[in-house]
Design a protein around this nucleic acid. Structure first.
Lengths: 202, 202
DNA sequence: TTTTTGTTTAAAACACAGTTTTATACATTG
DNA sequence: CAATGTATAAAACTGTGTTTTAAACAAAAA
């Protein structure tokens, strides 16, 4: 009965590795079974489907990484510092977890209602406290009034999209893998500046 | 012998319609053949593969729409006006062509080297004149010096990514389809402001 | 006209995918 | 010891994209 946990973990490990190396769609369930040295049927025994296996891995990865982001959004620091920390932390997470990037792309691509309502995702974007802070600071006259939805969308776009068009950027700007990482790290300063400029009173 | 063009067009029409309605991955070649009232084998006779059919449709759609964007980037207008027009035109294209959005997602998702080197894509992002203008204006002291790659990536991110997370935005902000379109149109003013702020001398 | 070439259809088969079924072993609990 | 839930294995099922084979037809070339 202890075998069970082992097998489940073996499947998760094999799947994670293959998903990372070849992408979700180019990884077959038979590949996973082979790599994990288990029978094909076990895969559907533990996880009902490949889709479910994918969502399990994705959700765990998200949960592991999103805590830090939520903590930043909910912390009692100045807006400016909050934006800087959030952007930097988010970028670090995406730099360290290529799987997360490709998973997000898979999810965006499928974009079914089911997936959007994943706990892992709605959890990550619980921005109540942050948006309230934007409203409060504007009322106090410290910053310009801004549409909070737009503001958060701006932030997410500037952080996330460059990862999605990584190949394009590398190609167009002739960047090596390391160059690209440097390019991305530069955005830790650039993005907060852009966003905070938008909030500054004239 | 005139039949040929007809059949090819019938396939393209059927595929376009189905790709739009059900998405590329959820559309089978048998679906397409049925809808076009042609034999399955003809599909591989005209287009070597489903992949190739997809790329053909995508490339035509891109070519049709990117001309206007390129024209704006290469025109002799002020930087400020250029950014405004480019953002507005790009957003209008994506609003009018949901297929383009979902195609871009498919391509981002697959992100193989082959696809990134499509003429349709590299053509769209020939930004030489635009980046030169950024450099020249900075030299003249009219704007702040900025990294042109970052600047273009910022612009693309702010324009494109919201379409990718459409479902998420609609869900989180409780927007109807029309609300979402309004939201997107609001960005025609917002995005240029953000970008031009970044260029303003302090 | 006859021949050749390009186009169209039909039916079947192929390889590979995700999934399901069936049967059997194992281990823990009652 | 029997019963029950868990674990494994092998094979089959369904649907996918693709290819093959054979036959028909129309238009262009000889």
């Amino acid at each position: 009965m202890t075998k069970g946990k082992n097998t489940e973990q073996k499947i998760l490990n094999a799947a994670t590795e293959l998903f990372l190396k070849k992408g979700v769609d180019r990884t077959s369930v038979r590949d996973i079974a082979n790599k994990a040295n288990i029978n094909l049927a076990l895969l559907n025994y533990y996880f009902r489907s490949k889709e479910n296996l994918f969502i399990t891995i994705f959700s765990r990865l998200m949960k592991k990484n999103s805590k830090k982001l939520i903590a930043i959004l909910d912390s009692d620091i100045s807006l400016e510092e909050k934006i800087e920390k959030y952007v930097a932390a988010y970028i670090d997470i995406l730099l360290k977890n290529p799987l997360l990037v490709s998973f997000v792309l898979v999810i965006l691509h499928r974009s079914s209602d089911k997936i959007i309502k994943l706990e892992a995702i709605s959890y990550l974007y619980s921005t109540e406290k942050f948006t309230q802070q934007l409203i409060d600071e504007a009322k106090k006259g410290n910053i310009r009034k801004t549409n909070t939805t737009h503001f958060f969308v701006d932030m997410l776009s500037l952080i996330t999209f460059p990862f999605a068009i990584k190949l394009l950027i590398k190609d167009k700007a002739s960047l090596s893998e390391n160059d690209f990482k440097t390019f991305i790290r530069e955005r830790k300063k650039r993005i907060p500046r852009l966003l905070i400029n938008e909030l500054k009173l004239k």
